[in-house]
């Protein structure tokens, strides 16, 4: 079904994106073996991480990290936040600075336990790891906000890291941390919250700087390669949008006597071409021929094998 009409284009686009990323991971691998590495530029907010941890050590106060809200279980955003936090924890462990990780749900808690413990073990400081430094707080949004605020205030955190998915509670965290004079590094994948972090925090990673962070910090070839691949994808998207817009611009200047109905070309009175009828728009908006779809005839199953409708729809 998804390949009918121009549906293949979306598939192809996704495939191209994935292959760009994959190719560059391979490229980074091979250049890593040769001893060189791919170029990535400086990202301002990330240099602040070491500074923040350093200051916390000077003050002898803890570093507090929040990997964001993430539905009912862990997702890629909170995992990425934890990737960054394992770097932070490593720096903190070296300076034997206390850390606190506040988790929104049990799955994130599980992964955080595992990852941070591993960091301490790799640094040979396994005995310094305190399982209670990673806490499950609550998976109700505002109870979480209240709990984390309380913790920031009571522990007088010197550096705070808010990264991942943040919603309305972003400003509660940022302003509370500001009130105890903590240095804040923040990033939200929800761009509706980014302005609040910009207003209240010392350093903010905007948009996919968040995803670039781990590549920048660890310089691991897989991550660097993937980052370069992402750039290729973005350039491809820019070109697609640019040429698509030019195509639409050119085509609406034309007159046409053809139009589309139910996925089929039909004759219509002469009119200016609509943007939706341009080649690039047609590529992105498949419009399957309804007659072709209806022409597919299916036999019925014997009644004893028909699935029972489950209450509440759930179609696909």
């Amino acid at each position: 079904m998804q390949y009918l009409d121009t549906g293949w284009f979306g598939m192809l686009l996704t495939l191209i994106m994935v292959s760009f990323i994959f190719t560059n991971i391979m490229r980074a691998h091979s250049s890593h073996r040769k001893g060189s590495s791919l170029f990535i530029r400086r990202i301002a907010g990330l240099n602040a991480i070491d500074e923040a941890v350093g200051r916390a050590t000077e003050m002898g106060r803890p570093v507090l990290m929040v990997p964001g809200l993430s539905d009912t279980t862990i997702n890629a955003k909170s995992l990425q936040a934890l990737n960054i936090f394992s770097y932070v924890a490593r720096t903190a462990a070296k300076f034997s600075n206390p850390i606190l990780v506040c988790c929104y749900n049990a799955s994130v808690y599980t992964v955080a336990q595992e990852m941070i413990r591993e960091v301490y073990q790799q640094e040979g400081l396994g005995d310094r790891f305190d399982p209670d430094s990673i806490q499950y707080v609550s998976d109700r949004q505002f109870a979480f906000a209240a709990g984390v605020s309380g913790m920031i205030l009571r522990e007088r955190a010197a550096a705070t890291f808010f990264m991942g998915e943040f919603y309305a509670e972003s400003l509660i965290f940022a302003e509370t941390a500001n009130s105890v004079g903590a240095i804040q590094v923040a990033s939200s994948t929800e761009f509706n919250q980014t302005p609040f972090f910009i207003a209240a925090c010392d350093y903010v990673l905007i948009g996919d700087e968040f995803y670039a962070a781990s590549a920048y910090l660890t310089r691991a070839p897989v991550l660097v390669g993937s980052l370069v691949g992402q750039d290729w994808c973005k350039v491809a998207l820019m070109l697609l949008v640019l040429f698509g817009a030019l195509d639409v611009t050119a085509e609406v200047q034309l007159q046409t006597t053809r139009g589309r109905k139910d996925g089929k070309e039909v004759d219509v009175p002469i009119h200016r071409k609509r943007p939706a009828d341009s080649i690039s728009m047609r590529m992105l908006n498949p419009d399957p021929d309804t007659e072709v779809v209806k022409a597919v005839k299916r036999e019925k199953l014997p009644p004893d094998q028909i699935s029972i409708p489950s209450p509440g729809g759930g179609g696909n």
Partner: peptide, 8 residues
């Protein structure tokens, strides 16, 4: 950008 980041 975020979408590509998530995809990668």
């Amino acid at each position: 950008g975020v979408g590509i980041g998530l995809l990668a």
